[in-house]
C-alpha cells in the first residue's frame, strides 16, 4: 500500500460516517430553517427572534453560561492542581470527583430538584434545624433567583468534572523541570501557576472551555427539571417549537442561532488562548 494514500484511506470511513450522519442532517436543518413553503426566506428567523420569549431565553442562556463557566473553570483548575500534587489516592479522588459525569443531565436535574423542592432535603434540613416553621416553596416564580441558583448549582455539580478531567491530563503533560526552573529563578507557587501552569495549559484550556461553553449553550434537561417554563432558555425554545408548536422551520432556525453563538464563542476562546506563533507547548 502506498504510504501516502494509506492515511487518507484509513480516515475515509470516519469521514463518510460524519458526512452521512452530521453534514447531511445539518444541510437538511439549514434547508428547513431558510425555507417556508416555497423558496429561500428569513421568515423563520424573523419569527423566532421577534417572539417575546426570545430575548429572555437568550439572556438566561448567556447569563447562565457567564456565571457557571467561570466558576467551573476556577473550580476545575483548583481541583486539577490539587489532584496533580497528590502522591497517593490520586485515582480514587479523581473517580469520586467525576461521578457526576456518569449521570445524565436529566437525572442530575432531578437530584437537585429532590434537594430544592417543597418536601426536599433543603426544606427538611432547615425545618429540622428550626430555621423555618413550615416548608417553603423555593422553585416558584416568586423566587426567580432561587431557580437560577439551583440550576447553576446543578450545572456546576454536574459538569465541572469534564473540565477537570481534561485539565488533569493537560497538567500531567507539563514537565516537572519547568516548575523546578521557575522555582529556582524566584517564582512563588502562585507565580508558578500563573507563569508556567496557565500558559502551558493553553491547549487543554482551549479544549475544556470550548467543550464546556458549547454544552452551556445547549443546557436543557437540568433547566426543565428545576425551572420548567419559569426559566426559558434557547434549547427549551427549540423543543417547544418542534414538539409543542410543531413548527420545524422555527425550531431549525433557533437551532442554527445556537450553533452560530457556539461557533462565535469557540472562535473567541481559540483566539484568546492561542499559542504565539513559534512557541511550542
Amino acid at each position: 500500500m502506498n504510504a501516502r494514500t494509506l492515511p487518507y484511506l484509513l480516515i475515509l470511513p470516519v469521514t463518510l460516517f460524519l458526512c452521512v450522519f452530521f453534514i447531511y442532517p445539518f444541510v437538511l436543518v439549514a434547508q428547513l430553517a431558510f425555507t417556508q413553503g416555497d423558496g429561500f426566506t428569513l421568515a423563520n428567523f424573523r419569527e423566532v427572534v421577534g417572539y417575546w420569549k426570545f430575548p429572555i431565553s437568550l439572556k438566561n442562556t448567556l447569563l447562565l453560561a457567564a456565571i457557571v463557566v467561570p466558576i467551573q473553570l476556577a473550580l476545575s483548575l483548583a481541583m486539577a492542581t490539587m489532584v496533580s500534587k497528590m502522591e497517593k489516592g490520586r485515582d480514587l479522588v479523581l473517580y469520586v470527583w467525576t461521578i457526576p459525569l456518569g449521570i445524565s443531565d436529566l437525572a442530575a436535574g432531578i437530584i437537585w430538584l429532590a434537594i430544592f423542592e417543597q418536601s426536599g432535603f433543603l426544606n427538611s434540613m432547615m425545618s429540622g434545624m428550626g430555621l423555618i416553621d413550615k416548608p417553603i416553596s423555593l422553585l416558584t416564580y416568586e423566587h426567580p433567583w432561587v431557580i437560577f441558583i439551583a440550576i447553576a448549582l446543578a450545572e456546576i455539580w454536574r459538569a465541572t468534572a469534564i473540565m477537570l478531567v481534561i485539565l488533569v491530563a493537560g497538567m500531567g503533560l507539563i514537565p516537572k523541570e519547568y516548575y523546578e526552573a521557575a522555582e529556582v529563578f524566584g517564582a512563588s507557587p502562585w507565580k508558578r501557576f500563573l507563569k508556567i501552569t496557565l500558559p502551558m495549559l493553553r491547549p487543554s484550556l482551549q479544549t475544556a472551555l470550548v467543550l464546556r461553553v458549547i454544552l452551556a449553550f445547549e443546557v436543557f434537561a437540568v433547566v426543565i427539571a428545576l425551572g420548567g417554563s419559569l426559566f426559558p432558555v434557547l434549547m427549551a425554545e427549540t423543543y417547544a417549537y418542534q414538539f409543542d408548536l410543531l413548527n420545524s422551520g422555527a425550531a431549525a432556525a433557533i437551532a442554527l442561532i445556537i450553533l452560530a453563538i457556539s461557533i462565535g464563542f469557540t472562535l473567541i476562546i481559540l483566539r484568546l488562548l492561542r499559542v504565539p506563533k513559534g512557541a511550542t507547548i
Partner: peptide, 28 residues
C-alpha cells in the same frame, strides 16, 4: 530555592517553550 541566591542550569535546559528567548533570560 528562590531565597538562596542561586541560579541553575538544568540538564534538559528547561528553557520555557511558551516564552521568547528574551523573556526566558528575563524570567528571574
Amino acid at each position: 530555592p528562590r531565597d538562596r541566591g542561586i541560579a541553575m542550569v538544568f540538564q534538559n535546559y528547561a528553557v520555557f517553550p511558551h516564552l521568547t528567548v528574551f523573556e526566558n533570560i528575563a524570567f528571574g
